[in-house]
């Protein structure tokens, strides 16, 4: 069976740490980084990269357009 894996890239300098991506992620992939960016916001990152399915929910709901989403189908 083919397995779908996704990955996100966060533009950490644009991120304002509103946590909406984390809240709307169906697979609990996203967490907030302990470190802060130059404006002092805790930015989003992939806490469980294995769980990402590339559904784009986080990127769609992000008010600042910081998330880029990639998705690939792997044949097993």
């Amino acid at each position: 069976m083919a397995k779908i894996r996704g990955a996100i890239v966060v533009d950490t300098e644009r991120c304002k740490g509103c946590e909406l991506c984390m809240y709307n992620c169906p697979t609990q992939t996203i967490g907030m980084e302990h470190k802060v960016n130059s404006k002092g916001y805790h930015y989003a990152y992939m806490e469980n990269p294995e769980a990402c399915i590339g559904c784009t929910n986080c990127a769609v709901v992000c008010p600042d357009g910081v998330i880029t989403v990639y998705k690939k189908k792997f044949e097993q």
Binding site: G17, A59, D64, G65, I67, K71
Partner: peptide, 29 residues
Amino acid sequence: IIKEENLVYRKSAVLNDKVFNFCPGCGHG
């Protein structure tokens, strides 16, 4: 996975690189 051919969502090219000045989480963005 992070390769150009697997891209499914990115920020629109009509938006420039300036950071929105809205509060975090604002629907205006």
